[in-house]
Nucleic acid binder design. Structure first.
Lengths: 335, 335
DNA sequence: TTGTACGCGTTATCAT
DNA sequence: ATGATAACGCGTACAA
């Protein structure tokens, strides 16, 4: 029982004994239609099970009622148990639901994928584009903005493009974490930094550097890419280079988790010998051994606010150039 | 520098000195166009930066080139560090990318959300719908199928509807896990079951029951909802009811993780006093203390295969009624 | 307040 | 092989 012709505006009009235009008005909530007629139309709509054809509507209104969420897809990272990207998806979905718009999810990992995203978004097939933290200085956001397409980034764009963005106050969060270590008497504080082609990686390292330097303490840095594997490798590197370290700030909880395990394997006790602090506050953080002290970022809220900003932009409003959300230091037992 | 009119087929045609129809043919890869003309058209397309208007195309072709991925959204579950849903998203995205189609993500948690999904999908705004594991006996898949809309479920539909689905062999996976416990000499094997309104929860419990019963062992069951919190509560319940248990099979890694912690807090050693096995093999499983023995399910592959099935269905092919993927017992140190 | 008529950009059906 | 031309379903000036 397939292809039963979908009813069109025309069919509803016939049924209700009015013109297409009137039906269109009722469907779109115009107030200039007499009440009894509205009622008749609504009845016909219900009887026929009429649903507007979005393609036709888009063709004339030039709106698609959908926005794209673009995420970098490193095969291994985006959907490991890192909760950052899922959190952003969820926040965006919530906000779009309220606005009755669709979420088109695009992964832009491979060059082919990136090309595809570019084709799709520049083709104006969406009303706006929300970029989740990109790698390097991707020129696409600026390109879209130049085309007049609403764009918002999650995380400050690295190429300095003048694109509205939402982010958490990375430096402040890291500063609080490192201060906490210092206040706890730690003096040889290392860091496992995030990837230096992502703004979150860069800023968290900056926060570390500024804070230890201001305290007159030495810098000890190893670089990872936010994953557990990289965290373990970085921790081994730090232990080899600085066997006397007494604390580690890791730029992600996953790296912190792996670092704790590596420390234990090396015979160091956490936090007695080495204190560890992470960043993110993923759910697992409360279940590590010992439970992880970490900097919580409101990741779902980031997705929501970014989407809200985008919707306002798409509605033609002026928006603030940046929206910075606060972080919170969650003190558990690892530091 | 905004709204610069997008070039249309008409503009390209003028530029290339041919008709709209010819440009359309070239753009859509028809072979019946003379080579030199093809070249001229392609040049014009490139110069003008022409991109087809999808709405116009959809209007006439009746295809949208997008499919919907519908997920239940329990505020807490879908995007916690459970990797099931992100994994399905990723698999679907990969497969759709290859097919050059878009992924429209819809969360159907609230009644309002569910209603929205229904409106959108029945409105034929997508070429097909992939449902991620649903709660209870949702009538929507069957309703869509009755409308002739291609539908595939991830996980067997609970209402017995005749919808094609993909799933892993839950019972076989659980059986292997419980057997492993029995082979290791365990005789008082409890389970922390998943929610009994989801097919994965039901089947994993079935697998447990069948296996322990076949071995002449007693059943000890507590029910959770796949989350850590519920796992901890269930473990406490089991300890209270059956203090002499010597093994636990948990229907998710998150619950297994929490169970291990609860066991330790109760003074039981894992695996010496109580062996623990989970289900999923999320990344964290390798990093728990001790590392978790678990049943791995190929979750990304599930998303891929489901999407592939859906695409074939949308292409008018006949497809097999079900596709069952194998699981694998990953033996680590908890059992 | 309601209806008429046009146009949105594309593909498909015919002729040629 | 190519070009007119008619849909596709809707929103909206404009007319009544």
């Amino acid at each position: 029982m397939t292809g039963a012709q979908r009813p069109t505006l025309e069919a509803v009009a016939r049924r209700a004994g009015v013109s297409r235009a009137t039906v269109s008005r009722v469907v779109n909530g115009s107030t200039t239609v007499a009440e009894p007629i509205q009622e008749a139309v609504r009845q016909a709509v219900a009887e026929l099970g009429y649903v507007p054809n979005l393609a036709a509507r888009t063709l004339v209104t030039q709106r698609t009622d959908s926005i794209a969420l673009v995420m970098p897809e490193e095969a291994t990272r985006v959907f490991s148990d890192d909760q950052v990207f899922p959190g952003i998806i969820r926040g965006a979905a919530q906000e779009l639901e309220a606005a009755d718009k669709q979420l088109v999810l695009m992964l832009a990992g491979s060059p082919a994928g990136h090309e595809r995203v570019e084709r799709y978004t520049t083709g104006r097939h969406v009303d706006g584009v929300l970029f989740a933290s990109l790698h390097g200085a991707d020129p696409l956001p600026a390109k879209l903005a130049a085309l007049g397409i609403p764009v918002v980034c999650s995380g400050r764009p690295l190429d300095g493009a003048d694109i509205p963005y939402v982010d958490v106050d990375q430096v402040a969060g890291v500063t609080r974490a490192v201060r906490h270590l210092i206040d706890g008497g730690r003096r040889r504080i290392a860091t496992i930094a995030g990837p230096q082609d992502m703004v979150a990686g860069i800023e968290r390292l900056t926060g570390y550097r500024e804070t230890v330097t201001a305290a007159g303490l030495p810098e000890m840095v190893a670089v990872g890419d936010f994953t557990r594997e990289s965290g373990a490798a970085a921790m081994r590197e730090l232990l080899a280079d600085h066997p006397d370290l007494d604390a580690v700030f890791a730029a992600s909880d996953l790296m912190a988790h792996a670092a704790m395990r590596t420390l234990r394997e090396a015979g160091r006790r956490v936090p007695d010998d080495v204190a560890v602090i992470g960043f993110d506050d993923i759910e697992t953080a409360a279940y590590t051994d010992p439970p992880l002290t970490t900097v919580r970022q409101p990741i779902v809220e980031l997705g929501r606010q970014g989407t809200r900003l985008l919707l306002r932009l798409a509605a033609g409003e002026d928006v603030e150039p940046a929206l910075i959300l606060p972080t919170e230091l969650i003190i558990r037992e690892s530091a």
